[in-house]
Amino acid sequence: MDNRNDAKVAVLVDCDNTTPEILEHALSVVAQFGRVIVRRGYGNHATLANKWQEALVRLAFTPCLQYQYAAGKNTSDIALALDAVEALFDRRADTFCIVTSDSDFAYLCRKLRERGSTVLIVGEAKTPAALRNASDQFFEWTAPETPIAAAGPAAAKPAAPVPAPTPKPKQRPRALVNAVKLMAADTPDGRVHVGTLGSYLRRTDPGFSPQTYGHSGLVSMLKTYDLLNVRQEDGGHWTVALAADNNPA
């Protein structure tokens, strides 16, 4: 991962499109990219109340109330986009985290990236590919399951043990081998830094994550491939290359 600890991050939340529970996840995601200097939540008067009001106040977000001047017109989206462009041009932020699953923001993401900004999207599983691919990196948030409370006399009975979640089956997509083959061609020894490989995979697929394929991390995922050779170098970092049998001389 690139050294972005000094980046100035703006977190802009489309409150009309998502749920307050996503906020803490978004903040934990962007903490690795730099210092959050703009926190804003956008919505109409019905949205920015109750749970949203509590979450925005607790997590120090500035609520940006937008009235709907006509039915069906979402003024919140326009306000969010204008504030993002303003923060870009006055150099308050160089990294933008947009919390939404609305593909209408894909054009905004592309414009920010054209100006050299890093764009992150935190959204739900319903987020369309058009928005995911318009970002530098997509982070999917899944709502935690709420246990159902028993009613009546049954409530006094001890709760049945919750079964452990079934681990995802480990998958080995061929695209990873193809990426190593492509990148290794440009190195003198045919080896690729695993960190560089991870950055490349996220650029080609902003939603890429080893966990999606049932692995705890990229190194452990690479070790499952017979076609690849993974090695820890003297400096402690990991490199990967095509296995000898699959690396033409």
Results as ranks from 00 to 15, higher is better:
5 N>Q: 15
6 D>M: 12
9 V>H: 03
10 A>H: 01
13 V>Q: 00
17 N>Q: 04
21 E>H: 05
29 V>F: 13
30 V>T: 12
31 A>L: 14
32 Q>A: 15
33 F>N: 00
35 R>W: 06
37 I>F: 06
39 R>Q: 10
39 R>V: 06
40 R>V: 14
43 G>V: 01
43 G>H: 00
48 L>D: 00
50 N>P: 06
51 K>Y: 03
52 W>H: 03
53 Q>S: 14
53 Q>T: 09
54 E>S: 10
59 L>C: 04
60 A>M: 14
63 P>C: 04
64 C>D: 06
66 Q>P: 02
72 G>L: 15
78 I>G: 06
83 D>I: 14
90 D>V: 11
105 F>V: 10
106 A>I: 12
108 L>C: 11
109 C>F: 07
115 R>A: 05
118 T>N: 00
118 T>I: 06
122 V>M: 01
123 G>M: 03
124 E>L: 03
125 A>K: 10
128 P>K: 04
128 P>D: 07
130 A>G: 13
131 L>T: 05
138 F>Q: 00
138 F>K: 00
138 F>C: 00
140 E>R: 10
142 T>L: 15
148 I>T: 07
153 P>H: 04
155 A>H: 11
155 A>M: 10
158 P>Q: 11
158 P>C: 13
159 A>V: 14
160 A>L: 14
163 P>V: 03
169 P>E: 05
170 K>A: 11
171 Q>W: 07
175 A>S: 12
178 N>F: 13
180 V>A: 09
190 G>Q: 05
194 V>M: 07
196 T>G: 15
200 Y>M: 08
201 L>M: 12
201 L>E: 06
202 R>C: 15
203 R>K: 09
204 T>A: 10
207 G>D: 08
208 F>H: 04
208 F>Y: 08
210 P>K: 02
210 P>Q: 04
217 G>Q: 14
220 S>M: 15
221 M>D: 00
225 Y>V: 01
226 D>K: 08
230 V>G: 01
231 R>G: 07
234 D>Q: 13
235 G>A: 15
237 H>T: 11
239 T>P: 03
240 V>T: 04
241 A>F: 05
242 L>H: 10
242 L>K: 10
242 L>N: 11
244 A>N: 15
244 A>C: 13
245 D>T: 06
248 P>T: 05
249 A>G: 10
